[in-house]
């Protein structure tokens, strides 16, 4: 079973994402900020990461940049999921190593389609 780490400081968003992603066959782990997510990845590198941008302690972009320096950290497919919706921000995320990008608000259909577009399904 593929694993996905859901990183978001909102418990509600994590719960919604978990439900959708479990339905399409992922095993889910959760983290509430980038630092927690990094700790998760050091224990067990997931196949996919659904990543919020604005979070306390460590934001999503910094997490992504740090992740890519880790051993095995090139492997996970990263899908941003954030209220940030300017073209500059999207380009920055892709240049930093994200594969897909979801602008909040989203629904199950979008989440599934974006995971398909990222080659995860």
């Amino acid at each position: 079973m593929k694993t996905c780490l859901v990183v978001d400081d909102s418990r509600v968003i994590r719960k919604v994402a978990r439900r959708v992603l479990e339905d399409i066959g992922f095993e889910i782990a959760e983290a509430a900020d980038g630092m927690e997510a990094l700790a998760w990845c050091r224990t067990a590198m997931p196949d996919a990461i659904l990543l919020d941008w604005n979070m306390p302690v460590m934001n999503g972009l910094e997490f992504l940049q740090r992740l890519r320096q880790e051993p095995g950290g090139q492997a996970p497919v990263v899908v941003f999921c954030t209220v940030e919706n300017s073209l500059d921000r999207i380009r920055l995320a892709l240049d930093s190593g994200a594969t897909e990008y979801i602008m909040k608000p989203f629904d199950g259909g979008i989440l599934e389609a974006k995971f398909a577009a990222a080659g995860l399904l």
Partner: peptide, 23 residues
């Protein structure tokens, strides 16, 4: 709308072919 451009359109095609004005 932001919903519509997220249905079926990969992000790289969005940034290649669209401009955003607010949402």
């Amino acid at each position: 709308t932001q919903f519509e451009v997220q249905r079926g359109l990969p992000i790289r095609q969005l940034i290649a072919h669209f401009e955003s004005q607010d949402e």
